[in-house]
Design a protein around this nucleic acid. Structure first.
Lengths: 194, 194
DNA sequence: AAGAATGTGTACAGATCTGTTCAGTTGCTA
DNA sequence: TAGCAACTGAACAGATCTGTACACATTCTT
């Protein structure tokens, strides 16, 4: 096969869903833009809801890979002597993300906006993504040997989500830098009370 | 007039848009649920986009009134000796909000998810709402005579947005309490460096 | 009581949406 | 070269969407 048609549809759909939303993007538009026939699309994805789910699973993997790569990159270059270097690097990565020309906010936050029902598969998948990310933050803290309160990973997550949303809705592109500053204060406070 | 039909449509539409999203909610459903004839609806709102804008303007006023009332309520009862009592009361109000049975996240965050284009009137109105709220936080800080960094109001906003999003997408209903704890740390840090 | 304003109910146009069908084409493999 | 799997393109069904039209009913004001 010259190109992986399934992957082509996933990538096109991710772009269109990000830019225009899930409900506002028709299957026909995904078909037209991906230049894959409708028959093939429905061979790989049995319905639009199924496509949305698969797009989000793909985005989950893509984002994880991207953020890990960027964290490693920024750790090498800076923040070597910060208490939890990877967290500072994470906010540096967020800054890059927010300032991409095609930044559309977080796909999972956006998905929950459109699929508000907590029992809907799309909402559940998004919740799972967020909790996995909280787990990732916890791992970063544990690996660095940083001693902190039980809910400290949750605190960092709130910081991250807030920065994402404020960058998107209020168009405050510097919010990752603000978040990074808040991170420093919160880390310092944990160290003092340890 | 027995009831204000326009207001009836606004309230019904707000409920449906909140629960199901803007694109997923049809005009017909708003009409059926509000029991106002379609003709009347189109008399007051010249299009669906217009209705969405008016619903968000209504929500803006409703939310402002509600949050102000709850802040006053909680200030009277508790937090009297906290540095910026109103901010602590604000997070108490957020906690109430998140634990409402019909909590659907923030309508303006959700609106930006569906109307991603920054030049779209709906996105612009949402941005305006968020910036006005940031102004409100700044006023609260100024009124209390609290001396802080230039971007401290922005920091508090990031905290609030993060708590809202994490309560909604990750279903962490206690995130307002976590945010309140973070607020205390951030306030203390500002006082120390003043 | 008359007229103006407001509201109702329904049918409709035209567009768009998801999902299916099917005959034909392409390209890989044995 | 024959067979098979993958893919195409276009038409179609049926539902749903926004927005309009129109004849009629209700309510308020003067």
């Amino acid at each position: 096969m010259a190109v992986d048609k399934r992957q082509l549809v996933l990538e096109t759909a991710l772009k269109l869903f990000s830019e225009n939303g899930f409900h506002a993007t028709g299957i026909d538009k995904v078909q037209a833009e991906s230049k894959v026939s409708k028959t093939t699309m429905y061979k790989y994805f049995k319905s639009k809801d199924d496509l949305i789910l698969e797009v989000l699973k793909f985005r989950d993997e893509q984002f994880d890979a991207w953020i890990s790569e960027r964290i490693d990159f920024h750790c090498e270059n800076t923040f070597a002597d910060e208490p939890v270097a990877k967290l500072f690097a994470l906010f540096e990565a967020l800054h890059e993300w927010f300032n991409c020309p095609n930044f559309c906010g977080c796909n999972f936050i956006n998905a929950c906006a459109e699929f508000n029902d907590q029992n809907h598969p799309v909402h559940k998948l998004s919740t799972e993504h967020k909790l996995n990310f909280a787990g990732f933050i916890k791992d970063v803290l544990d690996e660095s040997g940083f001693k902190a309160e039980e809910d400290f990973a949750l605190q960092i997550c709130i910081l991250i989500e807030g920065a994402i949303v404020f960058a998107h809705t209020a168009c405050q592109k510097q919010s990752a830098k603000v978040g990074q500053k808040m991170l420093r204060v919160l880390l310092e406070n944990q160290r003092q009370s340890a």
